[in-house]
Design a protein around this nucleic acid. Structure first.
Length: 672
DNA sequence: CTAGGGTTAG
């Protein structure tokens, strides 16, 4: 009877059901068919069905169609707007979400709780505190901030924007809380690096009768591994076992457990957790592999990766790009090439993140042509792709090219983000392109989505400092709206050292030691300022100060890959079996460089008050020179005419000169 | 019909 009375409604209902099904299961082909049917049956302008269409296309990842349907709607409601915003967010375009929000408000539509929570999430992803606060204001006025889901998303927004105190205030204000509220605030404290507070909250939530779930545990374990708190982590591990929490099925938990033990240096325990997993999945594999890699145990990491390749588990883009990142960091170009060859053979090798990581690997290894060729061949490029190119060219001193990419990406309608600005500013700085750098910085200041962060200011200080504009650099620090951190003073201090400004250097050095007196690097920097000016007594005094505090700087290391094996050297290293021969070949080179090109040691970089001859001797055994010596001995460089040496700290001026002269003599390309 | 929490690349 009902069907006879409302035949139209039932037809419409069937279409809606079909669309919902296509949306849920992400079936684009069927979705398009239903779309066609909808139009054919005269429902093309039906509000509810159009909303369903927008949602369906969004869930299928076809945002062009979702927007098209939305644009052509003659009538819209809150749901239409929100569905489209949600689609953009889920397809990784949080900026589009927020833009739509403002359009919606200007079109006099009232956001509802769905709209608000979606946009708070977008603010968190984009790290746009001001916009988040603005929307928070509107939300309070509308009264939707009392809704649990909205409240949770506000807590999340503040903690993602680095305002953990505001997040806690919001959390405390929440009328009723659920498990997600607790998980969100705990994750916030973990993100803020305050793992202890996260632990306290973890206990408090249980006192409040909330049962932790897999998200709680992964977050907690992450807090522990970030703080290297193996004991607390083990307690949670024990808790998991005794409470009979079904870990084996939850990949994220075992992954975090492995990560915890790896980060705390307990590879045996990590291996045990891994071995106990009945059905190993990709997350467990990658946690262990990346753990080994990050610990510097590349041989084991590569071996495990080989096992993974031979297992039934399908390698995905996450693992591929992470592994490639490891090879890039260690400049293992041969391993990287091999992985590249492997990646093109599997489906996940097509993912954009994998492409990006391969391009990055070639750039970090100094193979710019190869990198650019790949970049040009990419089917699609995103912000990261462009930023990788800018960083790579900038690092190798091609500032002009970096700038070219920076503007070209914007012509391609890809908006720079925080990291892009960092890349372009540091590229300008390294190439001495002062005006261009200042222009980019002013563009950043005018940018709606990205606000200059402390790192951007640090780049500008570096830029001005290199140009000798130390006073301006200092003024910039003092006038910026952010609290200066250790890094920015360090940047200014090293500029003082380069330009021999002892007076400002002393002042900045004092600031630095007061601000962070526990970091050995600061003492070394301050003592170097004195050493550079010949004030050996003051230099020694600072060194003594650090010694008395028991502070030791990380040792400088260099490494070189020979036949897929990595050889490490520290300064004055004589543990390598070929040490004798390395010294011989370096002496020989030095002799030729002195005779043919008039090379002299830059003893300014010998930072001790010793006679000139000993200074030269101390410079000769810098780790990068030793690594080069080994590469020369091996002879593999002759064919490719490339020697690739990597190091953990910055190169000294003498080694820099040494390498330049050496390149001239041997006509090889040296990359660092 | 639209919404909330963890892993990838710079």
């Amino acid at each position: 009877m009902t069907r006879l009375l409302f035949p139209i409604r039932s037809k419409r209902q069937r279409l809606a059901n079909l669309l919902r099904c296509c949306s849920k299961k992400s079936l684009p082909d069927q979705g398009v068919q239903v779309h066609a049917a909808t139009v054919k049956m005269g429902f093309g302008f039906d509000l509810m069905l159009s909303n369903d269409l927008v949602d369906m296309y969004a869930k299928c990842g076809i945002m062009d169609m979702a927007s098209l349907v939305f644009d052509r709607m003659i009538e819209r409601n809150v749901v239409s707007w929100t569905a489209l915003m949600c689609g953009h967010l889920q397809n990784g375009n949080a900026r589009a979400t927020l833009s739509l929000f403002y359009q919606m408000v200007f079109s006099c539509f009232k956001p509802n709780e769905f709209t608000f929570s979606t946009n708070f999430k977008a603010c968190g992803i984009l790290n746009v505190l001001e916009i988040g606060m603005q929307i928070h204001g509107m939300c309070v006025i509308s009264g939707f901030d009392c809704a649990l889901v909205v409240g949770n998303s506000i807590v999340d927004m503040y903690s993602k924007c680095g305002r953990i105190n505001e997040a806690l205030t919001m959390f405390n204000v929440l009328q009723d809380r659920n498990l997600i509220s607790w998980n969100t605030i705990i994750a916030g404290y973990t993100l803020a690096g305050q793992g202890e507070k996260a632990l306290v909250l973890f206990h408090k939530m249980q006192q409040n009768g909330e049962i932790p779930d897999e998200y709680t545990f992964t977050t907690m374990l992450k807090a522990c591994s970030g703080l290297r708190k193996i004991r607390e982590g083990s307690v949670i591990h024990g808790f998991l076992i005794t409470s009979g929490f079904p870990c084996s099925g939850k990949a994220a938990i075992t992954g975090s457990l492995i990560d915890l033990y790896v980060k705390c240096g307990n590879l045996i325990e990590a291996r045990m957790v891994f071995n106990q997993i009945a059905e190993k999945n990709l997350i467990s594999w990658s946690a262990l592999i990346l753990g080994y890699a990050q610990e510097g145990n590349l041989a084991e990491a590569v071996e495990l990766f080989r096992q993974l390749q031979n297992s039934t588990t399908q390698v995905d883009g996450f693992v591929l790009s992470s592994m490639m990142g490891v090879f890039a960091d260690f400049a293992l170009v041969e391993q990287g090439k091999q992985m590249h060859a492997y990646a093109v053979k599997i489906p996940s090798g097509l993912e954009i993140s994998v492409h990006n990581s391969i391009v990055d690997m070639y750039l970090k290894c100094g193979m710019l042509d190869e990198a650019e060729k790949l970049f040009n061949e990419m089917p699609t490029r995103n912000v990261v792709s462009w930023t990788v190119m800018i960083t790579g060219y900038g690092k190798h001193g091609f500032g002009k090219e970096a700038i070219h990419f920076f503007y070209k990406m914007q012509l391609d309608n890809i908006e720079p983000d925080r990291v892009t600005y960092l890349a372009i500013l540091s590229a300008c700085s390294h190439s001495g392109l002062i005006k261009e750098g200042e222009e980019c910085f002013s563009q950043l200041c005018r940018n709606r989505w990205v606000k200059p962060g402390i790192e951007h200011y640090a780049c500008m200080v570096d830029l001005l400092g290199r140009d000798g504009r130390l006073k301006e650099a200092k003024d910039l620090i003092e006038s910026m709206p952010l609290k200066p951190n250790v890094g920015i003073w360090q940047t200014l201090l090293s500029a003082c050292r380069v330009h021999g400004d002892l007076q400002l250097g002393k002042e900045v050095g004092q600031n630095l030691l007061t601000l962070d007196g526990d970091n050995p690097v600061n003492y070394v920097m301050v003592s170097n300022i004195y050493a550079g000016a010949g004030y050996w007594m003051d230099c020694e005094e600072v060194r003594e100060l650090a010694k008395a505090k028991g502070l030791k700087k990380e040792a400088g290391r260099s490494w070189v890959e020979i036949d897929k094996e990595v050889h490490f050297f520290h300064g004055g290293d004589n543990t390598h079996p070929l040490t004798e021969k390395i010294h011989q070949v370096l002496k020989e080179m030095e002799k030729r460089m002195k005779q043919d090109l008039g090379y002299v040691h830059e003893v300014k970089f010998a930072l001790r008050d010793i006679d000139e001859e000993s200074k030269e001797e101390s410079l000769r055994v810098h780790s990068e020179k030793l690594a080069i010596g080994l590469a020369l001995l091996h002879g593999g460089w002759a064919e490719a005419r490339v020697i690739r040496v990597f190091k953990n700290l910055r190169i000294c001026g003498d080694c820099h000169d040494f390498i330049k002269f050496l390149s001239k003599i041997l006509k090889v390309v040296l990359c660092d």
